[in-house]
Design a binder for these strands. Structure first.
Length: 256
DNA sequence: AATAATTACAACCGCCTTCAT
DNA sequence: TATGAAGGCGGTTGTAATTAT
């Protein structure tokens, strides 16, 4: 015991501060650690996670132990890929509850909130986008574009130009992002331009873009654009230097 | 066969809520 | 009522495995 005992400020600070890093292991769990934690919980049950690491002979913090048990070791967890029925249920529940994963998991026995969240972020979100559905609102993208251009923006001063600009940015960024062209700052603008001289053909030949044009058509009509495709192509070629500079000109990173 | 890109998922982090004192 | 511990949640990151080039 140090001189000063309970009242010593240094002692108080040490008790309140987190333990030094060397006392706590991080990263992937080993099979031995899993066995220790499983044996401890089977013998003592869950709860009081803060002390579990120590009592189970693990150099892990309580949070880490709890997470490992609830997301992986719990015996009622069903591991393995999601069935199509489960995927449909997740989409349905997400439309109702949003990203309240614990709520969604409660309606899917055997699945953890972490698993569902991961599956949503890696698979389902993309699938909805490909179907032309916004994964946040679960509404068709065409409907959202329409709202954006005709209601949110188009009724304010200087609206038409703003709406056109917003609309074109969305299309152009998508076209560049989804094309096979991956320029870098070291490529240089001139060679990038030569690579994309026929970018409109990439856009037209890409079936996803065709679908995107379908979504865009009613918005274009609302803005008084007779043919959105030619307008976007003109915009894209005209604004290529600007797009290149804003996206890739400031770093050596490749385009994502 | 080697390398790059993408995918899948375990784990961490920070914040919030609840509860006991 | 204020405070701190504990548990829970959602967002994000790191990385191993897989697939594409």
């Amino acid at each position: 015991m140090e001189v000063g005992g309970e009242g010593n400020i240094g002692d108080v600070m040490r008790r309140l501060s987190p333990k030094p890093d060397e006392d706590v292991r991080k990263g992937a769990w080993t099979a031995e650690e899993d066995n220790k934690l499983r044996a401890y919980v089977e013998a003592n049950g869950t709860g009081h996670w803060r002390s579990v690491g120590k009592k189970a002979g693990l150099q892990r913090c309580g949070k880490s132990c709890r997470l490992r048990w609830t997301n992986y070791l719990r015996p009622d967890i069903r591991h393995g890929s999601f069935t199509s029925d489960e995927e449909e249920l997740i989409i349905e529940l997400h439309a109702t509850h949003g990203s309240r994963w614990s709520l969604i998991a409660a309606k899917m026995p055997g699945r953890t909130d972490n698993d569902i969240k991961n599956h949503w972020n890696t698979r389902l979100k993309k699938r909805l986008c490909d179907m032309g559905i916004d994964p946040v609102s679960h509404k068709p993208i065409s409907e959202l574009l329409w709202d954006l251009a005709t209601r949110t923006i188009a009724h304010s001063p200087g609206s038409k130009q703003a709406a056109k600009r917003c609309f074109s940015d969305s299309l152009l960024n998508k076209a560049v992002r989804e094309s096979c062209i991956r320029p870098t700052s070291t490529t240089g603008l001139s060679s990038f331009q030569s690579e994309v001289t026929d970018v409109k053909n990439i856009m037209i030949s890409n079936k996803g873009e065709e679908k995107y044009y379908d979504h865009a058509a009613p918005v274009a009509a609302a803005l008084g654009l007779d043919d959105v495709r030619y307008w976007v192509e003109d915009e894209l070629l005209h604004r290529l230097p600007e797009i290149w500079t804003s996206s890739f000109g400031k770093s050596n990173e490749t385009c994502h």
